[in-house]
Each structure stands twice: as structure tokens, then as C-alpha cells.
Nucleic acid binder design. Sequence first.
RNA 1: GGGCGAGUGGCGGAAUUGGUAUACGCGAUGGACUUAAAAUCCAUUGGCCUUUAAAGCCUUGAGGGUUCGAGUCCCUCCUCGCCCACCA
Length: 813
Amino acid sequence: MNRYNPKSFESKWQDEWNKSGIYKAKDNTSKPKKYILEYFPYPSGAAMHVGHVRNYSIGDAIARFSRMQGFEVLHPMGWDAFGLPAENYAIKNKISPAQAISQNTTRFKSQLNQMGFSYDWSREINSTDPKYYRWTQWFFLLLYKKGLAYQQESLQWWCPVDKTVLANEQVEAGLCWRCGNKVEKKSLKQWFFKITDYADRLLEDLDDINWPEAIKSMQRNWIGKSKGALIDFKVDDSDKTIQVFTTRPDTIYGATFLVLAPEHELVSSITSKSQKNSVGKYIKDSQAKSDIERQETNREKTGVFSGSYAINPLTGEKIPIWLADYVLVGYGTGAIMAVPAHDERDFEFAKKFNLEIRQVISNNDEVDGVTLGEGSMISSGEFTGLNSADAREKIVEKISAMGIGSEKVNYKMRDWLISRQRYWGAPIPIIYCPKDGVVPVDEDQLPVLLPEIESIEPSGDGRSPLVNVPSFVKTTCPKCGGPAERETDTMDGFACSSWYFLRFADPDNQTVPFDKSKADYWLPVDEYIGGAEHAVMHLLYARFWTKVMYDDGLINFTEPFTTLRNQGMILAPDGSKMSKSKNNTIEPDSLIESGYGADSIRIMELFIGPWNQASNWSVDGLGGSYRFLQRVWKVVGQYIESSKGNLSQEINFNIKKIEHKTIKKVTKDLENLNFNTAVSALMEYVNELYKINQSTGIYKDTAWDQAIVSLLKLLCPIAPHITEELWHLMGQTESIHLTTWPTFNESIIIDEVFELVVQINGKVRAQLSVATSLGQEELVKLALKDEKIIKYTKDKTIVKTIVVPGKLINFVI
RNA sequence: GGGCGAGUGGCGGAAUUGGUAUACGCGAUGGACUUAAAAUCCAUUGGCCUUUAAAGCCUUGAGGGUUCGAGUCCCUCCUCGCCCACCA
């Protein structure tokens, strides 16, 4: 037999698997189904590195294991290919985005193929294919029909580098999520999806899905639900009122001033003549501050007096109205009633500007003059003496009765801005008619094709380059037939990825986005595997669309991903993140080329540490994985080439026992996704087999037949090529990946003897090999006869004896 | 500041959930093979411990507690990582 040389057979099997289509998922079978999905990749210019490969190695191990356990498995792959990176790559390389995507998907696909992942490529999808984005546009129309897509002119996040608007979620600490540059505000009319209508359901349904707590809490935090009240404060000597949002209406007797955000719409009308200059200056200053600066915490409070007063509706007192940038225009009403005695920020502000601090709740948690939390009411008129939680309800009741306020639930989450002023996206299927206004494109006119054009760079005036394509823009109104113009904005790429998991159930359908019965069979996704970077964008949007589809009767489930797994990142050997810009990426291609082969890489990806923990890549470690497979090759090879020997019954049984123990361990580990310990169990197994055949010189006998079969089957979800090759060298003709998972027999595993640990006062003093059948008393007798134990126990009284059956005895002296 | 997670050999990590701490792998050291190297194979490899063996003691970030027995449970503290962050 030749030496283990993965190059000599890995690509052969990859071709064979593709040709025979063994990974094709069958619709509507009677088998239980499992839908295993890794986030569909973005085929950017940078190729896949070993960090990405880990994601797919995990998914593929689960998929292969599940197939062998009798599940009908859907394990598809596709391309999330609209959006800026492809567009920028195209501009840089002077090719069209379509060409760029085609090049990059070819590269990615060959990378995935040479790793031997078991995808059903017959279901491959590409979000930039008109056959796909036709349905993304169809969903836009669905949302529009349901009143969930609307246009609004307002201040938007604008990235001056990417020259497009961004959704709230896509701005991280004042920086663009893609390019990392500072964003600005720009007033524009844009398309939004009304995700806020689903805020409560998006929040509540988190309780029913099996997701990492970290991701759930990020989504909860992002939705940011809080219960409180809206209260109107009349402006003194004016007909204006200022509405504030507060979560603590119970503290209203301690509200000693109001604060408006500098951008609040009433600022100019309530500023007094004498304060005009300083207010104007303050507004200018705060605009000049970047959003990063404004978001810095522990920044000293700044503010300015407006010159006007409001009336506290319950105390009747005149209280000053201030402006300060610690109040954010986008949250609540952009105005607050300040209660410095019970809010740290208001307290800081009041201290700095010498405003009144009035305590109205008392408890034992006072720190430096601020009392947080609940307590009993003081100095609060008729509410004095109540506890604050009760007072909160009563005060809201009273305010409602007075007609100046009401209970209100508030959310941090904003609607999803989906317009993009860029070329490379799905066109928004809307037509503007001078007569009929905004008119949706008829469904049967979809797709609205993205035209192929020369210059795809943004127009420069804040509009998409499509404005310069008359053949695209000029159209007729579907209603009146008169001349009209198309919307030139394209859709956020996250729209495409909000439903792709459904298209895999029915990728070629030309009449509907997917057939309901197929979706009902395959969905929801059972295992969704990807990085944590999608926590609040993709994963929130996809949940939102799913609920919209459910409401429309298109599907019968409300959550798209039953179980979510966040794999740990693979870092560069020095612990830094791998990135093209740092030039420290390690790509699988070169590792395969240098002779390690795909299987070694796959083993390494899983063996390196727990699947959900970050690990540093190690080339030396890869060598260890390779040596392991080499030993597998050797053990199985010797078996294949030998003729049947004649081992003792005892050794035969011993081999069988190790085999069954390993089946049990590896099965349990794969069920729990403990890939690293599954690999180590297989290593131990191979080492044991190797030792036995070294010591006996016999490589084949009754027990060996099964031992080798089990070894290959247990290993094949992780190392599909070497196992397939050896399987066929053994004379098998069917693929090993179509076989069933081995089972174990508990009665074979049971040991007849075990190592009894004998402790004195909890310290191990002796180990005895004893028969499993012995009773507790016999064990104690045996232990007390041991020389070492006699040494420790003579002249002492044993106070207590603890016997753990099958494990240990502890004598307390 | 808030939330989540994690601290175990030279390194990545394991430990049936309270029962032999350091499995498995890497690295290192010594040896075999070789003209030599690589590869492969064999042996050793937590510390006290500078020859080995036996015996002993110590050891899971630090300190305390519960328990016959703690890496695992409880309390206090330290360090690191990630996410969120003036949300009224």
C-alpha cells in the first residue's frame, strides 16, 4: 500500500460526489428532515481563509453526521453578492460588478469544493441573479401592500465615503459598519421598512428559540423596550406644550427643570430674546461635534438655558427649560423632565448649572445625593407615603384624567432604512407618475432589471448612478399609462439575505418565491451556523420578514432559525484577527497544495478547541492532524493487505470493547458538537488499535473487521476523503457517506474489573484492580488489606468510610 | 458604567457535572534509522528535583467557606476577552 497522500485521491472523490449527487436533498420525504445552514458567504475579492473554513467544517460535520443518523438533510450553499464590496472591487479592477461576482464565486466555490463540503449544489442561489432578486422585489411589494414600506424625508445617516445612506443598525459608534469612516447626517427622502411594528413580537419570540444568550441580549438591547409615560408640560406665557417621555412618572414632583435636545423642533420658538445668542452658539457647537464625541461617556455635561419656563403640571411650579446634548433627539420625544435627585445624568447637570435638586423618593440606596430605584414617596402631595411603584400607576392615572399624558411604551429600535444610492443592488420596484404619484410596479412586470451600465460610480449629488440611465429611468405609469420615472435607489443588501433560507427550499420556482409545501417541509432552519457579527442586522431583519410572511399566510412558522450557533473565530498564529489588509490570512488552498490535504485542515479546524471558542491557527498543530490521518491510513492499510490471523478470544474481545466505547463517546460528542473531544477519542482509538497490531503482529481477525468499519464511519463526517478512499480500497462499492451510523452495545462496554481508588482523608493512597462484581463490604475488606493502606491506618481509628461504587473508597481517620 | 464569557503544564486544551487534575495534540529533550537532513518510529516530559528510583509534599488567577472529597458549589477580590454604552 502507498503512503498516505491526500493529493492522490481528494479531488477524485470531490468529482465523484458531485457527479453522483449523493448530497442532493429530496423534498417531502417521509424521513425526519434536518436543515443545516451556514450563512451564505459574500464572495468578495479576498478569498476564504481558514477562519471561514471553520464555519463550514462545523456545518458539514453536522450535516454528514445527521445524514448517517437517518435524517433527510438540506445543506445548501449560495452567494450573498449585492452590495458595496463587490461594487468597489469592480471599480478598482475596472470590471463590472457582475463580472467581479462571477470571478469571485468561481474562486469561492472551488475553495469550498476542494474542502469536500457536502453541499447540494443543485440548489445554489445567487442574490444578484434576476431570477432571485425578482422575488426580493416581490417581497418589497408585499411589504408595501401591507403598509410596511413607506417613504419619509428626515435626517439620515450618510456615509460620505460609501456615498450612501445607512440604516441605524449599520452605524456603529458613529462609524460606517462597512468602511469604518465617520458618518454624517443628511436630510433625504428614503424608503423604510416598518420593523418597529414588529418590535414586541421580535422581543417576545426570543424566549422560544435556542440561540446564544449573548445574541438574544444584544437583540433585546437593540429593540430597547421601556415602559413609561408621555407627559405634556405647558410652556409658561405661551400656547406651546413640550411633551416628554419618562420611565419614572412617579418622580414628577422632583422634576425641577426640562431639557430639550438641541435639535428639538420647539427650540427656536421657546428661546427668549436675551438667550438667542447663547442658544444659537450652543446649537452650532453641538452640531460641530462629531457623533463620536457626542457619544463619549463621562463627558462633562454641557447645556444652555432657553430663557423660557414650563409649568410642572402637578406642582404648578415654574421650572426652567434648558437645552443639552445629553438628550438625544432620536429617542423618546427628544425632551425630558429632569429629576436630578433620582437620575445620575440630571444630577450631574443640575450640579453644574446650579439647578434645584429635590428628593421625592426615599430608600437606603442613596449615593452622593442621588437615590436610584424604588422607594417610598416623600414631598409628593397626595402621593406621599405610597411606594413608588404604586405611585407610578396612580400618577399616570391622574395625568391621563387631566388630559395631559398617557402611558407609553417606547423602543430604541428605529425603522429599517433600505434605500441605497448605489448601483449594485436590487432596484426598488416603484414608479413615480406626475399624475398618480407613487405607484408600485405590477407583480407580473418583475423583475425590474438592473441595467448594465458603463459608469457605476455614485452620481455625486447623493443619488444613485441609475439617474443617468434614461432607458432605465423613463417608463410608463402602470396606472395611467402616461410617462413616468422609476425609483433609482436600490435595496439594502440585507433585504436579499432576509429570505434566502426560504429560497433554498425551492430554488428554481418561477411562479412564486417558494412553494409553500416545500417550505413547510424544510423550514425552519434547524441549525444555523455563523459568526456573531450578524447579531442585530441580518438576524433581526430575517426574523422580521419571517413574521411578515407568516402574517400573510406564506409560511406556517414565525421564527426562521430554531437553533443558532456562533462559531469561535480562528485568529492568526499571533492572536490577531486575520484580514487581507494585515496580510496575515492563511488560505486552505496553499495548505492543500503543500500536501496536508483537506481532511487534515478539517480535523484541525475542529480539534483546535471548542467549536464556539476563538483559537489561534497553528501550522504545527496541522502537522499533528496529518500524522493522525497517516496513522489511520497505516492501520487500515495493514488490515487491507493482511490475511486473516488468529488472535486470542481475549484480544478479539478487547478490540471489540474499545470499538464500542469509542462509538459511544464519538456519538455523544457529535450530538453535543464536542468536535475536539470526538477527534481526541478517535486518536486514542487509533493509537490503541495500532498498539495491538504492533504487539500481536496480526492486523486482521474477526474483531478487526468491525473495528475498521467503525473507525472509518466515525471519522467520515470530519474527514470525508480519506475514509471514502479506504472504504473503497476495502472493496466497498457504495459511498461511505451513504452508510448508517454505527451503534454500540452497552453490555460489551461494561468492564469486568476496574481500578479502585483508595483514599485516606481524600488523598489517593492506593489503586487496586478489582472485580466489578464485588459488593461494597468486600471492596472495603480488600482495601484494608492493601499494604499502603495498612501503613496509613495502623494505630488509627477509621471514623468514617465512604464507598462510591465502581470508583473509590475514602477512609476518614 | 452596564451585559455576557473566560482564567488549568512551555502552548492549544481535557476532566463522565462533586469522586485518580493535566486525556488528546503541539512543542521540547534523548534515542533508532540515515553519509546527512527531512520523514517515520521508540522513550521521557506539571513543580519542589541538577542522576535515577522509591517515597513525600505542592499545584487548576488570589484569598476564604461548604464537604469525607472542590478545577467543578458558595462568598470576596484580581486579570483578560467580546458586545453595548448619556436610552430619560
